[in-house]
Nucleic acid binder design. Structure first.
Lengths: 245, 245
DNA sequence: CTTGTCATTTGATTAAAATCAAGGCCTATT
DNA sequence: AATAGGCCTTGATTTTAATCAAATGACAAG
């Protein structure tokens, strides 16, 4: 096993001895698509590093549909925040999104190592407060904004991430829909509407943004009000999806 | 100056001595609307607590218009994540949104205090992860549930808090509405509908829960599906608020 | 090449909550 | 008591997204 866990910044400041210590309590698993890692309410005595693929964190509501809280990309750790709690319980469920490979670590053991180094502590606090920020932002993404706004914000984020106006969606549309807490149908319709407004072109999972300006304003809800009312979208079912006004 | 900075989770586990130490390096400022606190690219050696008002975090894009990243509400700290980084640079600009009052803290000094003991670090990490959990819960409160569900959950919480089925709403209805992320009108209608279903009686801000059973099930969305469809509520405007169905 | 499965799209409909527009009802001040 | 300004309520309407129901498409297995 020659994976260097220092790729994850949680471990990046550990020296060789510490890495060895940590690895002693670790366990590598290969997961198939949809395979569960843990569920909401399980006792949380391990945390994880995604070595390959993606892990989906989600909750299931009583009516059965799931809200995707986060999708952890390879190279990142998750559930490490819980290790500082008294009776840690996973607040979400986790399963592989496509085939994935993960390493799990014993929380207690890692805490012991932490108590040797402040710099590792500080790093963790850094990640945690970034995550806090992210969640807070997500909360108002979810409350203050419409489905279209959320969609545009996501596209914009993605666009800035890759640095080009042409890119591939980072996951299946249905998954992204859930992530943005909307139904796949709604996702599809919004995309279709943006397309009819010449904001972007789609081909499968390929997106080509053509009107960056408009996308940006839609994503921020500002200036949208300033747009001139245009003739309604010709597509009959799309009445409710009009961007303008 | 008798502000207790322990209202912020970052400080919540500090003892009196530590609070005093932290306060020594602090500085209180009153900001007018639009007054700048720092700009993108500035060296980040302080972090902040919003005591009053709101602070807007934003970036200015190349074409000159600004993108709002976040709005920090009073009682919250911001830019503290940066203090755990190597060469901290503010990634956003910050300015007051309306008149605001903030306290700034010296990051290095705070780190020194942290370095005094692992237990303080661990406690902070503990609080942070609790908060993380809280936010996750809040996210699905907001996404997985309907306005009625949120309302019922809030009433139930309140009821169990005071331990009686008769209680006073903890704030003005409009405020509660905003808290539950709905409009005052919606709040009013839901209350009215619950009333017509004999779940509760209202008189001003007084609530008397009469059907605890039903309230509970509405708050959990379970078993709601099992209810028999009843005749529609007589009030014409209330069609969309029916609980059953 | 067919079949089956799964994801996506499309259309029609319904439901939930926002919005718009009055009114009503307190309570504080004059 | 009269008036004004806040809330809160109510009604009508519109908007948004969910739901239901079918097509369509894509891809892997046989």
């Amino acid at each position: 096993m020659n994976i260097d866990i220092r790729m994850a910044h949680l471990f990046s400041t550990l020296d060789d001895t510490q890495v060895r210590q940590v690895m002693e309590s670790s366990h590598v698993s290969t997961l198939q698509d949809g395979e569960s890692l843990f569920e909401t309410g399980d006792e949380a005595n391990r945390f994880f590093l995604v070595v390959g693929g993606q892990i989906k964190l989600f909750r299931v509501s009583s009516n059965g549909d799931q809200k995707i809280i986060d999708i952890i990309q390879q190279g990142n750790t998750f559930a490490e925040a819980l290790m500082f709690m008294e009776h840690p319980i996973y607040p979400v469920s986790a399963e592989a999104l496509g085939p994935a490979k993960i390493i799990s670590f014993d929380s207690k053991r890692f805490l012991q190592i932490l108590s040797q180094s402040f710099s590792v502590c500080f790093r963790i606090m850094g990640t945690m407060s970034q995550r806090l920020r992210g969640l807070i932002k997500e909360i108002d993404d979810l409350t203050l904004q419409s489905a279209t706004t959320r969609m545009c914000a996501m596209l914009l984020r993605r666009m800035e991430e890759v640095g080009r106006s042409h890119f591939t969606l980072p996951a299946a549309k249905g998954v992204l829909a859930a992530r943005l807490s909307m139904k796949p149908e709604t996702f599809s319709r919004i995309l279709q509407n943006l397309s009819s407004k010449h904001v972007l072109k789609t081909k499968g999972n390929e997106i080509q943004v053509t009107d960056q300006e408009l996308l940006r304003s839609l994503a921020h809800l500002e200036s949208v009000l300033g747009l001139e009312p245009e003739q309604p979208c010709v597509l009959s079912g799309a009445k409710s999806l009009q961007i303008d006004a």
